[in-house]
Amino acid sequence: MYGGVSANFLRGGATTIENAEYGTAAVLKFEKTPIYYLLGRGEASGRWILADGEGIDSYPQLAEFALGGGTDHLVNLLEFPKEAALRGVSLSLTSDLPGGFSDDQLAVVTQLFPALGLACYRIAASKTAADFLAVYTGAKTSARILAGDIQRGKGAAINAAVLLADLRNFTALTEVYQPGEIARFLDEHFELIGRHVEENSGEILKFMGDSVLAIFPTGSEEGEDPRKACTAALASARNLLEANEALNLRRKREGGPDIGVDVVLHLGEVFYGNVGARGRLDFTVIGRAVNEASRLEKLCGELGQHLLMSESFAAACGTACERLGSFELRGVSKRADVFKLAAATL
Rank of each mutant, 00 (worst) to 15 (best):
Ser45Arg: 14
Thr33Phe: 00
Arg41Thr: 13
Tyr59Asn: 00
Ile56Ala: 04
Gly69Leu: 08
Gln61Ser: 15
Gly46Asp: 03
Gly40Lys: 01
Glu31Ala: 13
Arg41Gly: 11
Tyr59Glu: 01
Asp57Thr: 11
Lys29Arg: 14
Gly40Thr: 02
Gly46Glu: 05
Gly46Tyr: 04
Leu28Lys: 15
Gly69Pro: 04
Gly53Gln: 06
Gly46Arg: 04
Asp57Met: 14
Thr33Gln: 00
Arg47Gly: 04
Gly46Trp: 01
Glu31Lys: 15
Ile35Val: 09
Leu62Asn: 02
Ala44Arg: 10
Glu54Leu: 04
Gly55Asn: 07
Ala51Tyr: 11
Pro60Leu: 00
Lys32Asp: 11
Gly68Glu: 10
Gly40Cys: 00
Tyr36Glu: 08
Gly68Asn: 13
Ser58Arg: 14
Glu43His: 10
Phe65Trp: 13
Asp52Pro: 05
Glu64Asn: 13
Ala63Pro: 01
Ser58Ile: 09
Arg47His: 09
Glu64Ser: 12
Leu67Phe: 12
Ala51Leu: 10
Ala51Cys: 08
Ser45Val: 08
Asp52Trp: 05
Tyr37Ala: 08
Ser45Leu: 09
Ala63Asp: 06
Asp52Arg: 11
Gly42Gln: 01
Phe65Ala: 14
Glu31Arg: 15
Ile35Tyr: 04
Ala66Tyr: 05
Pro60Ile: 00
Tyr37Trp: 10
Leu28Pro: 03
Ala66Pro: 01
Gly53Leu: 06
Pro34Gly: 01
Gly40Val: 03
Arg41Leu: 13
Leu38Asn: 03
Gly40Ile: 04
Leu50Ala: 05
Trp48Ile: 04
Asp52Leu: 07
Ala44Thr: 09
Arg41Tyr: 11
Glu64Ile: 12
Gly68Trp: 10
Leu28His: 13
Gly53Met: 05
Arg47Val: 06
Gly68Thr: 08
Tyr37Glu: 12
Ser45Glu: 14
Ser45Ile: 07
Asp57Leu: 13
Pro34Asp: 04
Arg47Asp: 04
Ile35Pro: 03
Pro34Arg: 03
Leu28Val: 10
Ser58Val: 10
Glu64His: 15
Ile56His: 04
Gly55Ser: 07
Ala63Lys: 07
Ala44Leu: 08
Ala51Thr: 09
Lys29Ala: 15
Ala63Trp: 05
Ile56Gln: 06
Ser58His: 13
Arg47Met: 07
Glu31Trp: 14
Ser45Met: 11
Asp57Asn: 12
